[in-house]
Design a protein around this nucleic acid. Sequence first.
DNA 1: CTCATTACTTACCTTTTTTATAGTACCATA
DNA 2: TATGGTACTATAAAAAAGGTAAGTAATGAG
Lengths: 118, 118
Amino acid sequence: MSKVKETSTNFENKKILGEECSEVYAANIIGGQWALVICSWLLKGKMRFGELKKAIPNITERMLTLQLRKLEKNKIITRTVYAEVPPRVEYELTKIGYELGPVIRQMEQWGERHKKLQ
Amino acid sequence: MSKVKETSTNFENKKILGEECSEVYAANIIGGQWALVICSWLLKGKMRFGELKKAIPNITERMLTLQLRKLEKNKIITRTVYAEVPPRVEYELTKIGYELGPVIRQMEQWGERHKKLQ
DNA sequence: CTCATTACTTACCTTTTTTATAGTACCATA
DNA sequence: TATGGTACTATAAAAAAGGTAAGTAATGAG
């Protein structure tokens, strides 16, 4: 997270592969330890920072912030700040964010089926 | 890749989250830089190690081996070795592996749509 | 004997991601 | 004056993932 070295082979590979395969492109966006869980919760409706923190077990504030920033940068969520004290910030999926629904549901279903094999 | 520390917080979090959310469980399995591309190719039919290497730009033999091993361990692919010289090894999706088709297609479609927004 | 072919393995290193911990600003309330 | 709540930020360190380069085994062809 944070900063990526734009001269690394790894960065190059991700880019090239993402350009060629849209599924890899998607994975680059919704990848990362917590992104999917955050999106799953937000599919049910907008949430505040603190609510997400409570909802997601063990996530640190830093990781939550980083992932939310990444999702925001990629236009998956919007961030609304209310000028109040104490502060209130709400996160909500964008249109394309909500369109992740089918993706997540497919993964969920596949995951369920795979679990049964173990 | 290679070894994960089973005492790390990261390992714990992945486990807990994977147990609760099947979509995260799925992501843990088909995550990694190259897993999705490999599966995409194999959806078209079985392939040899060398064919995959040629098909996937820039992948190193080490990464290809590691990812194939991980996929095999998770029962997504089968590995068939023919006792010939030079060696011949074929990789093929298992039943549950082929069932990744819909997942990958959804991700692909979503990726396409997201790309258009940029 | 030497070389080519195939599918790896190994050792080491860099980059990226994740975790841990502490600290900040704001103002209302006690 | 001290405290509390909210949503962060900063810094450092640990862990995981990925990359580079060299080496291996078996054997048939030349």
